[in-house]
Nucleic acid binder design. Structure first.
Length: 1000
DNA sequence: GAGCACTGC
């Protein structure tokens, strides 16, 4: 894949001697273009198109020589693409053939869907027949006439005598079509094979390797997705629904046989049957409701005394209760000498006493000796063992911070870094920000005196940019390493590298009891130091049988726990906002129905997007006699700790982001969680006393179906940012970078390709000047490119706002369930023609005009928290503008300039309107505008999107209308004029591409 | 006509 290093020099020399040109970028452009062209003709044509060289003179000869010399990777895929196009054209032909046949159907129909066409036709025919019966005979002729006309007047499609015969001929026709498609597929395959033979051996090998990986990835995905989805509730229900329907259909098929009556068509009968079924179900349901009501009133008269152990059987239907079996116990760490948790009195008495009571304390000397003897040490210890707060202090006391050296301790979360730093400062009796400080984005609470620095992992990563060898640090401690965040994983690779040539640097990797062996192997068999934690035992219960509807099961179990178990709060883990809201509603509803028969149950939701005042409610202490049930997302797994939780209810699912490097598409799917995260959840029950964890799956499922650990983030996310960072640290060979778990090859490749397209890397994969600037900005590469481009269009003020708004994750608009209409209205009020980016700009501007008011946010259904964050991001970016040599300027309402600047960053993400909806320009993938977009009903011809997400469809979120000519303006190296012309448009708008085409 | 878990720079 690498271009020979001497090539560029050769081209430059030639350019100089033949044409007297000496610009480097011309040489780069020529090589790049030559690499992408299939034939010399195309190359020359492209040079003509872009007007780079005057090809009338000796330059033409030179161009040919150059073309011969440049190795072309494009050759690998281009002919394949051509073959594909050809095959597509063939298919298209077939389609038009089919159009003749299925004259009533749109061109969208595929063979697979044609089955349903038959049904539609049945319906139509049935309708016609009815009419025929109703009306007189003379009309009959006209109807059949119309029928003929409708089928395109084609002679092949004469109307057969009977219904069945007609159906048969139709089937045969479809079969024929399928055969043709298969033929087209064969043609395409043959051409592909031929292309492959043309390749040189080395290219071929690489190509095949890539193909293999791609195939494997695809297969993996195919195999995994249904597997994962199968488990999601919605899918399960859908499947059940389908099965029900299938049963129904089978029944009907039997009946059809019995019914001698020709009058009823199959479809009619089916409808009838279905209606009957629905009616019966409704009856059953109503009857059940009556019964329930009856029982409820009966229960009301139950004497108080019977409410004892078996009470729940009275409150809950017997078939409603869920049977759990106790299987295992999460061992508490036995510590006979230690008094449970340090009480407040003790804390007041002496901070030092508390320090001494921590599990890590007895190991102080041993630990320090181990650190002195080994450069890298893996420390294994549960939360609560005091490793995060104590170890850096021990190191400080031992003198690791002399000679102005610092100790760094990284945390995956901002809050953790802040609170730990505050606590350590208190323990050491210094002011926060002096000897002990923290450093997180937007907030640097350190000074020159700071020697103990707590920071987020991303922050340390950024420090590598200014200090690649971490020269001012004597110790680096990576805490919570088992969480395997993206930043932690990158840090591992970098630190391992630094440690090699800085033998005096001490590296500590602190992790929970998980995977320490892997860390050890990664760091050349570094020793593992174990510290016992402090935790209470947790009994783990599993269900006897799998639960189909886990939401319902959750609600039932909560009530079950509430009525049968001793006091103590309950924590329920669900996957998302929607589910949490549903569960809370169900719980409250049931509690209301049960009324005073049960004790008070406080139902509290918690998820990240919940407004802060609602979030704060979960920390209020439970009133006496009541029980609190917190319904949470994963947020409660790591990010926040709720006191008083004794019971944990774990359905075993979580939402997980995954990334498809082939399409650059992210998706968020409900997946079974890993064993590690199940145990983490269970552990939440044992923080204040012995607890219980109820898992809504079987012990067998835990053993055999759950993954050991969650897939590390680095393998399921886009890596544009990371690659740029590593490149700017001088790491060129990313494929062989020492990753603890290497990301998929395709992900890296796509990231490199995108960076190349953005001009951050040159064709040799080296960082360019603009690439270096882009790495300075803490945003995604495309966003930073957009910011850099705003200089040219002098609209950096607006672009900064857009960038800031885009980087807060789609949580700008607040949409409470009970005020959906108002919220939507408020949103529509912000709409501006042009697209969602301008809407965001509009929201921010208005908010700024309101004086950054929270009241304004409340009135306009805008999330204040997100806006504040956007303001922080904007301020930070503004501060960095000078470093990347962009001046502050405003476009004064000329939004065309803003849109052009955005296009300059996002030209990679474009889609065009075709007859069959939107297609991405490069990958030719069918995509849709997100219904929340301001352009949802507009359907402009050319679009740019911020991101592509797969939910129910492939949606483009945050779209902007652009003109195709802008693409040539901002990315002439990436787009060919030819690509941008619109073959289907009747009226051609003015386009550079078109005029050039006409001239050339 | 959808429906976004959690972090981080």
């Amino acid at each position: 894949m690498a271009t020979p290093a001497g090539l560029e020099r050769w081209v430059q020399d030639e350019l100089h001697s033949v044409l007297g040109l000496s610009e480097r970028h011309v040489a780069q452009f020529l090589i790049g273009t030559a690499q992408r062209c299939v034939s010399a003709e195309e190359f020359v044509q492209r040079l003509r198109d872009t007007d780079t060289l005057d090809l009338s003179g000796p330059a033409c000869d030179f161009a040919l020589r150059l073309w011969n010399k440049v190795p072309r990777k494009a050759v690998v895929e281009k002919p394949a693409r051509a073959a594909e196009r050809e095959a597509r054209a063939l298919l298209e032909k077939n389609r038009s053939y089919k159009l003749l046949v299925d004259s009533e159907e749109s061109s969208e129909e595929t063979v697979g869907r044609a089955g349903s066409n038959l049904q539609k036709k049945h319906k139509k025919r049935k309708h016609l027949r009815k009419k025929r019966q109703e009306e007189e005979e003379d009309e009959e002729e006209e109807v059949s006439e119309r029928g003929k006309r409708k089928r395109g007047g084609s002679k092949q499609t004469e109307k057969p005598e009977s219904e069945d015969e007609w159906e048969r001929t139709e089937r045969e026709r479809l079969q024929d079509l399928e055969e043709r498609d298969a033929f087209a597929e064969r043609v395409r395959q043959r051409d592909k094979d031929r292309t492959r033979n043309v390749l040189e051996r080395s290219d071929k090998k690489a190509y095949e390797e890539a193909q293999k990986r791609l195939r494997m990835a695809e297969e993996d995905r195919k195999a995994m997705v249904p597997e994962l989805r199968k488990k999601s509730r919605r899918e399960y229900l859908a499947k059940r629904e389908r099965e029900k329907l299938e049963d129904l259909e089978a029944e009907l098929a039997d009946e059809e046989f019995l019914f001698g009556d020709v009058e009823l068509s199959r479809h009619e009968r089916r409808e009838l049957k279905y209606k009957r079924r629905v009616r019966d179900l409704a009856r059953e349901y109503r009857a059940a409701g009556e019964q329930e009501k009856l029982e409820a009133t009966n229960r009301y008269h139950m004497p108080e005394e019977t409410r004892g152990q078996p009470k729940y059987q009275l409150v809950l239907e017997e078939e409603e209760t869920i049977e759990f079996v106790r299987a295992t116990q999460l061992q508490g760490d036995e510590e006979p000498s230690a008094p449970s948790l340090p009480t407040q009195a003790q804390q007041k008495e002496s901070i030092q006493a508390v320090r001494r009571s921590l599990p890590v304390f007895p190991f102080r000397e041993e630990l320090l000796a181990a650190i002195a003897n080994h450069q890298v040490l893996i420390i294994e210890g549960e939360t609560g063992s005091g490793k995060t707060t104590q170890i850096p202090q021990y190191l400080f006391e031992e003198g690791y911070t002399k000679k102005g050296m610092k100790i760094a301790c990284t945390q995956p979360r901002r809050v953790a870094a802040m609170s730990v730093a505050a606590r350590v400062a208190r323990e050491m009796g210094v002011k926060l920000g002096n000897e002990v400080g923290y450093s997180i984005r937007f907030e640097d609470c350190t000074s020159e005196r700071t020697v103990l620095r707590y920071m987020t992992d991303g922050m340390l990563l950024r420090e590598f940019l200014s200090e690649p060898d971490l020269a001012s640090y004597s110790v680096v401690m990576v805490d919570e390493a088992h969480e395997r965040t993206l930043h932690t994983d990158i840090l591992f690779g970098l630190i391992k590298d630094v440690a090699r040539f800085r033998p005096e640097l001490k590296v500590l990797v602190a992790s929970a009891t998980l995977d320490t062996a892997r860390f050890s192997t990664f760091f050349d068999d570094a020793p593992v130091f174990r510290i016992p934690g402090r935790r209470f035992p947790v009994d783990i219960f599993y269900t006897k049988a799998p639960e189909a509807d886990y939401l319902e099961a959750c609600v039932v179990s909560v009530l079950q726990i509430h009525v049968t178990q001793p006091p103590g709060d309950i924590l329920v883990f669900l996957t998302g906002q929607e589910e949490i809201e549903a569960a809370c509603e169900m719980l409250q509803d049931r509690c209301r129905r049960l009324g005073s028969k049960i004790r008070e149950l406080l139902v509290l939701p918690i998820y990240a997007n919940l407004p802060s005042d609602m979030q704060a409610r979960i920390f209020q202490s439970t009133p006496p006699g009541a029980r609190k049930v917190v319904v949470a997302t994963n947020i409660a797994e790591t990010s926040l700790t709720i006191e008083g939780i004794i019971y944990v209810l774990d359905p075993g699912f979580c939402k997980q982001k995954s990334y498809n490097p082939r399409t650059g598409m992210e998706s968020l799917t409900v997946t079974p969680c890993s064993k590690a995260s199940a145990n983490q959840r269970a552990g939440r029950a044992g923080r204040v006393a012995a607890g219980k964890c109820f898992r809504l799956y079987t012990a067998w499922a835990y053993q055999h179906e759950l993954e050991e650990t969650t897939v590390p983030e680095i393998q399921r996310t886009s890596l544009g940012n990371v690659v740029l960072l590593l490149k700017s640290l001088g790491i060129h060979d990313l494929m062989h970078f020492d990753f603890l778990d290497p990301p998929p090859y395709e992900t890296l490749l796509l990231a490199l390709e995108q960076l190349y397209a953005l001009g951050a890397l040159n064709h040799l994969g080296e960082l360019t000047t603009s690439g270096r600037k882009m790495a300075e900005l803490p945003v995604d590469p495309m966003l930073s490119k957009m910011i850099l481009a705003s200089e040219k269009y002098s609209c950096s003020e607006e672009i900064l706002t857009v960038a800031a708004m885009l980087s807060v994750n789609n949580s700008i608009f607040y949409r409470p369930k009970d005020k959906v209409v108002h919220a939507d209205n408020a949103r529509v009020n912000f709409f501006l023609p042009g697209g969602d980016h301008l809407v965001l700009l509009n929201v921010y501007t208005q908010w700024a005009e309101s004086g950054y008011s929270s009241q304004w946010c409340y009135e306009n259904f805008v999330q204040f928290r997100s806006m504040r964050r956007a303001r922080d991001v904007r301020e930070q970016l503004e501060g960095l503008l000078e470093r990347v040599e962009v001046g502050l300027s405003s476009c004064q309402g000329d939004y065309i300039r803003v849109r052009k600047a955005i296009t300059a960053g996002y030209f990679y993400h474009t889609a065009r309107l075709t007859r069959s909806g939107y297609r991405t320009v490069k990958q030719q993938q069918t995509v849709f505008i997100h219904p929340n977009s301001s352009l949802f009903e507009e359907q402009p011809r050319w679009l740019l999107y911020h991101e592509l997400v797969l939910t129910t469809k492939e949606f483009m979120r945050q779209v902007l209308e652009i003109e195709s000519s802008w693409l040539l303006e901002v990315a002439p190296h990436y787009y060919k004029a030819k690509e941008l012309e619109d073959p289907h448009a009747k009226k051609m708008p003015k386009k550079i591409g078109k005029t050039r085409e006409e001239l050339g």
